[in-house]
Design a protein around this nucleic acid. Structure first.
Lengths: 259, 259
DNA sequence: TCAAAAGTGTTTGGTCTACACCCATGC
DNA sequence: GCATGGGTGTAGACCAAACACTTTTGA
């Protein structure tokens, strides 16, 4: 534990005290990025102790602030702006995030009020976000928390409750990937159909036929052809961008059951 | 407004004060029942004023109580036990549920602390439940809040924020009806396939072919034939019950996209 | 010219749709 | 018997899976 760094965090987060914040409720954000063929999760290194500890971005809500606005505010601190966000739900385990007696033993008395505040039970309202990994610039060392991408296969550096959030959220991501084309938020301005297919193969964890995928996806009418692209090897592929208007419409449709 | 009744409510809800409760977080439950061909929602009449005001069941969370446990606890007060519950999410509008100055003007000073507590902003964690309408006995006048079924088409007696919750939750119910067989929770021990089809027609708001429905549903393997049933008119139909083991398995499967 | 990857055509098989037809019961 | 609704059979449309074939590039 390095008290000085932890003090810096407390000073930055609670420069205006705790009275302006909603107690007992916190926001956590699970931000996914896709770096073929890996799904990544945004995490922050915290200097609670000398171990290599990471957390998922989180923060608090102003007394007069909408929940989703708070989530956007929190992600802006990591350099993530204008992100696609959806709520996962409220998680309310009884375990506390902080060990109050231990933390207090390492800090001057002036922080005790804040420490008591953050040591209470919190209901976590969780949002997930999707960003285009390669167009995103994380703010590092801007504050005291360093942001970095973490491979979703290895979340062992997160506390158990955050690992739980990541896994629950990934389940939801997979479900929504199947019913909605939210996936398109992972991609840059323009992309090839085979890159898109690569993502579906990664997330559904099985191969998908090129022809079938191409015909099905194009028939949805969400994509528009733009240009050519020089391939690394082999024949170049067309680039597509997605039609945001039709995309937003499609979010209200969902799949049909088949009766 | 009838202060005496409102006093009774406060006395009952806050007999142990507010310290044992988590502040700023509440639970609301949207409970659906199906009374062919209508979808019903559980509501409670409240004596805030002389108007015919209703709310959706709600309540608070003990400091050391899981969220879903709190939802079950709240519904037990209406006579709803062992209900199928799923979380809808957290709703955090900024509007307050109570008009503090007005309420205080009608109550003795001893209640002011409680009134202040409930007049704060609350993040509402919403659960939805599904019950078999005909096997459910609501507790009426057991406490001070009378429970009753409300037709989902007319929620005009609810406050706007609760109407919003009902509609958002109904959307979710429809989506989940399409992807999961949660519907079976609406039905009694045994039921006919045509009753089941009637429900799908009601919720999807379109006719479904008898043959197609029957073949598709039976092919899922969730149902088991039990006995005969005397029809009101015409040929009697088979009764089915659902296989709870396979049903629980199926909740983890969801529909496939079709790639 | 060959390898590699994109793009397209075609056969096959499954399944939903629509509708016709038969079955079991009450009156 | 006949009306009423339950249960089943089936032809056609449709669509995804699988795979072969063609096209376009780099080397």
């Amino acid at each position: 534990m390095s008290p000085s760094t932890f003090e810096k965090i407390l000073k930055e987060y609670f420069s205006k005290g705790t009275d302006h914040l909603l107690p007992n409720v916190s926001i956590n954000c699970i931000v996914f990025g896709y770096d073929h063929p890996n799904l990544k999760v945004l995490a922050q290194k915290i200097p609670f102790n000398d171990l290599d500890s990471w957390v998922v971005p989180g923060g608090f809500i102003e007394r007069e602030e909408e929940l989703e606005a708070a989530a956007h505010k929190i992600l802006k601190q990591s350099g993530i702006k204008d992100v696609f966000l959806k709520q996962v739900g409220a998680f309310g385990g009884l375990e506390k995030m902080f060990d109050q007696p231990f933390i207090e033993s390492e800090l001057p008395k002036e922080y005790f009020e804040i420490v008591e505040w953050i040591s209470k039970r919190f209901v976590q309202v969780v949002y997930y976000g999707i960003v285009n990994f390669h167009d995103t610039n994380l703010l590092s060392d801007e504050g005291v928390l360093n942001s970095a991408w973490m491979n979703i296969e290895d979340t062992s550096k997160l506390p158990p409750s955050h690992t739980h959030l990541v896994h629950e959220t990934k389940k939801k991501l997979i479900t929504e990937t199947i019913t909605d084309p939210i996936v398109l938020n992972f991609f840059p301005e323009s992309f090839t159909l085979n890159q898109l297919r690569g993502f579906y193969e990664a997330i559904l964890n099985r191969p998908i036929d090129r022809g079938t995928f191409r015909r099905k996806y194009l028939s949805m009418g969400l994509l528009e052809k733009v240009d050519e692209k020089s391939a690394e090897r082999g024949r170049p592929s067309y680039l597509y961008k997605f039609n945001k208007v039709k995309y937003l419409d499609s979010l209200n449709e969902k799949v049909k059951f088949g009766f």
